[in-house]
Amino acid sequence: MIRNATAEDSDRIVELLAQLGYANTHSFCKERIQELLANPDAMLFCYEIEGSVIALLSLHVIPQIALLGSFLRISYFIVDETMRSHHIGSELEAYATYIAKERGCDRIEVHCHERRKEAHRFYERHGYVESPKYFIKQITY
Rank of each mutant, 00 (worst) to 15 (best):
V110C: 04
S10F: 10
I2P: 05
V79W: 13
V53I: 12
R121G: 04
Y123D: 03
E91D: 07
E124K: 06
G21F: 10
P63M: 08
R84I: 09
R32M: 13
M83S: 10
G89K: 08
Q19G: 02
Y95D: 03
D106M: 00
F77H: 06
I54A: 10
I54W: 04
R32L: 07
S27K: 00
A66F: 14
S70H: 07
C105M: 09
I136A: 09
H26N: 05
H87E: 12
I2R: 05
Y22L: 07
K137Y: 03
R3K: 11
H111Q: 01
Y123K: 00
V79E: 11
D80I: 08
I74S: 05
H113P: 02
G104Y: 11
E93Q: 10
R121V: 06
V14K: 01
E50V: 05
L57S: 07
G21N: 03
D41V: 01
L20R: 00
I99T: 10
Q64H: 11
Y141P: 09
C105W: 12
I65Y: 10
A7E: 13
A38I: 01
D11A: 15
T82H: 05
A66E: 12
I2G: 04
V110A: 13
N39D: 14
I13V: 13
E91M: 05
R73Y: 08
I54M: 15
G69W: 09
P132E: 08
Y76E: 12
R121M: 12
L68D: 13
F77N: 08
I49F: 03
K137A: 11
E81V: 12
T6P: 06
L67P: 02
